[in-house]
Nucleic acid binder design. Structure first.
Lengths: 344, 344
DNA sequence: TTCAAAAATGTAATCGATTGCTCAATAGTA
DNA sequence: TACTATTGAGCAATCGATTACATTTTTGAA
């Protein structure tokens, strides 16, 4: 019992061929209206459901796409996923989500597995530790569309959807300068990733454009999350000439910094400004709401999905599309000296 | 070019049969070691990758499981997913994640789609709006393992992994009473869901066991997130006899309440205690860390996955397993009057 | 040397749906 | 009436891997 009904079952019942059933269900014009109606009714009656595996095998399209990212428990990433799903689900695609936990080996395995599973495309935000390209070339070799989002690496022929991190960082830095800060430190997570390198450069350029020298001591690496932010702030404040603002490449880093600064009695934003990056939800509901850069994750997801669809549709033509989204600076209390306007 | 190599390609190259190739690759003892070695080497050389679709169609197992939940951008849910993946990925399963956004119709569609896609099982946390059972019966009818996690509904023959919400709520309430609170309000999200009903009952029982009367005015519904928490707190404080503690069924509700209470100058925890539920990360890194109930999402995910595997393995035997995990109360500043011990 | 048992491969069907090609039946035309 | 379009539906191959059931080749003992 509980056997799934196939088109053969329907065919047998109606004493026709499976081919006819298939055509009827697909509204093939070569089938008479009468037959179509009969078949469709019987299908409903027998609770027939198309087997997508068989279809996939035949057509060579699984209608599955793989989404590979470091973690899903970051609001940014889960929102990107939501964007992708909103675009792809309505047209029959399923999304297979895989986390790399920032591990290169896992990323490679994952990509390989997805290829085996015959996904129709792979949307990926590379792990922090990824130094290799071979697994991406494998994807291209198999003619499977590959799209980078947010964290990318440069490979010819691969499309990407990213945020203008440079611009975002520039805006943050300019904003801090506008607030009267002149000694602005920058916490960078891992500049071997383009996004962090770009943020760093935007920061540097803004300083330069405002005639402020860049002090290497003000540039710190950021280790693990909140704790890293604390440590970094501590180090900075122990400098002979401590900064008066921190621009952190991550919201968690910004939070950690704020926690440390408060501990040692520094008043924010009066004496010190802090800005983060990513606009994680918690930044706005802290007691001291944290300024941050919004990365439009939903839009990024949708855009990545659209790029994938374009790629799928134009099989032969090779497209390389590099889309860059505009960042929005959300100014909140942590960096707003004159309480004129607070963006929610 | 870029054609995927199949076992037929390997067979042709070695002038043997596809059957032999298949057997060799699967280490069938009926194939000589020499042939095996030769086939395997050639496979690597030709960059052969098994087509999982074909295998799935033949075996009737897609090695995919569907995970259906309201949202993935809640730490609780994304951690459950992580637990599921950790258990299932290593043995070759892929996880297809689908969000219902608390919409019954979407849930029904999703389940239907997953069935069409021939998933080997469905792990689901039902949406708040789900009142129907028909789609679950469809799953059972097709003999596809169905496992509820966290949010369940009672259906015969369906296994579930849940938290002991009753116990969690009881602990919270007892803790508040131990802190000297006697007028404890409860914010409940939607008692048509078992989890919230159970929390309510644990709360009520704890009151009763301590000889405290239950005041219906202290029981409030909780609408949208933080805002809802604020509103609820406001309403409560406008009562003739306002409470001296709030036990919120959601962390966001607790946060909203705290925000309101602070606004009107009520000191926490000195004059008022607040406890949430879910142990979302933000509860511990707020300036005023919020007490909450940890739901062991990782363990829940792993357990659900294990139950699924048991079910898959014992095809014929019908298993109905109801696992209930123990909650842990994380006591933090928001409800700790005597600073003796703070759980991190 | 002979022949059965064991070892190594091959044959062909199967999973479920699709589709190019063929064929039959009906309609239409001269 | 004879013959050709047109329409409706069947046949069989295909997608890639697996596997029950042969068949062939070796091995080894009598």
């Amino acid at each position: 019992m509980a056997k799934k009904t196939t088109i053969y079952d329907i065919a047998k019942k109606l004493d026709i061929t499976a081919a006819t059933v298939s055509r009827a269900l697909n509204d093939n014009p070569r089938i008479s209206e009468d037959t179509k109606k009969l078949v469709k009714e019987t299908a409903v009656q027998m609770n027939y459901k198309q087997n997508r595996l068989a279809l996939a095998l035949k057509s060579g399209r699984s209608k599955n796409v793989g989404v590979v990212l470091p973690y899903i428990n970051r609001n940014f990433f889960s929102s990107v996923i939501r964007g992708i799903e909103e675009e792809l689900n309505p047209i029959g695609y399923h999304v297979i989500i895989c986390q790399t936990h920032e591990d290169e080996k896992k990323e490679i395995d994952t990509v390989q597995n997805l290829l085996n599973a015959q996904v129709d495309g792979i949307l990926i935000s590379i792990s922090r530790k990824t130094k290799t390209n071979e697994h991406f070339r494998q994807v291209l070799k198999k003619n499977v569309p590959l799209i980078f989002f947010d964290r990318k690496t440069d490979i010819e022929g691969v499309s990407s959807v990213t945020l203008d991190d440079y611009e975002g960082a520039y805006k943050v830095t300019q904003h801090l300068i506008d607030q009267g800060c002149t000694k602005i430190a920058h916490l960078s997570v891992d500049r071997s990733l383009q996004i962090y390198q770009n943020r760093f450069e935007g920061y540097k350029q803004a300083l330069e454009d405002n005639g402020i020298d860049f002090y290497p001591e003000y540039l710190l690496g950021l280790k693990s999350e909140i704790e890293g932010g604390k440590e970094a702030a501590k180090k900075l404040m122990q400098l002979e000439n401590p900064p008066d603002a921190i621009f952190s490449s991550s919201d968690h880093g910004a939070l950690g910094s704020i926690q440390y600064l408060k501990e040692v009695g520094i008043r924010i934003p009066d004496d010190f400004c802090v800005v983060g990056f990513s606009n994680e939800p918690f930044t706005q509901f802290m007691e001291l709401p944290i300024s941050s850069v919004d990365q439009s994750p939903l839009l990024m997801g949708k855009t990545a999905a659209k790029v994938f669809l374009e790629q799928i549709d134009s099989k032969d033509v090779k497209i390389e599309k590099r889309m860059v989204l505009a960042p929005t600076l959300k100014i909140r209390t942590s960096s707003l000296k004159q309480p004129i306007l607070v963006t929610k």
